[in-house]
Design a protein around this nucleic acid. Sequence first.
DNA 1: CACTAAACCTGGGAGC
DNA 2: TGCTCCCAGGTTTAGT
Length: 298
Amino acid sequence: MPELPEVESLRRSLKPYIIGKSIQSVIVHKPKLVSSSGTVRQPLIEKKEEFEKELKGRTITGITRIAKNLLIHLDSGQVLLVHLKMTGQLVYQEKGENKALGGHPIELSETKLPNQHSHIIFELNKGTLFYNDIRMFGYILLYPNEQSLHKSGYFDAIGIDPLDDTFTFEYLYKQINTRKSKLKSILLSQSIVTGLGNIYADEVCFRAGILPNRLASSLTKKEIRKLYNAIQDVIPIAISMGGSSVANYIMADGSRGTYAREHKVYGKAGKPCQLCGHILQKTIVNTRTTVFCQFCQK
DNA sequence: CACTAAACCTGGGAGC
DNA sequence: TGCTCCCAGGTTTAGT
């Protein structure tokens, strides 16, 4: 689910709640979410019991982000790698609190944590951190140290983060200019630009005035410049608004981001374009639903 | 190498 | 009310 602005907003919102806290105990209800399921991912801790035991007594010293992954650093040097995939949530709650998860009008009894989707629970010296995940695509992997994480190959195919200084126009120009796949494919590919997903790929294309299904190599330098500027504009603004809460995404305190109200095309097929009034079109690019304005985007 | 489809899962909404 | 079908913010893997 969450893209760069959502993961970054979650990171920032978690920070004051969990840094400096010690982990009293960990309960893993779904062992699958902390174990290996692929060839690239090779968490060093496979068993649920080991995962729980290894974390007990550790203190959380920091939380960082690489692409759409969160890294929770521990005083032992160990690193927890969290990927939320489509529906993962990290929510902090203190005793007596009652989070309105996702802001949906749901029964009071259902807002209590843990709920049936709280698959991993970290009991801290003050408060509790819940990992909730409806679809269970996400995971939390424990590595003995940062070096082993980077050596594992997990981040080998990772591109440049839009927030990084090294994300320059020249970089984007070269990446797009030399490829012949569709523009949206390139924006979605984490090995080129990290952090964009289906929402922001469409939003960025609209703001740049470029059709998402254009062949990348057909873009002019001027168009790539527009695209670069759109990425540089949209991402920080989305973060400042806490990201886009479309369905399940919430921050550490259970609150929703408000950037969805700024969306120009995502989720708006069939509605009039805010710029020209023509009806926004829907198509499939890269197996993903894609919304665009056939008049404002060339 | 480039692209597509399927797979991992559950749940909400639309339509009948 | 209930059933079926479609769709969903991500990413990997298998197949063409």
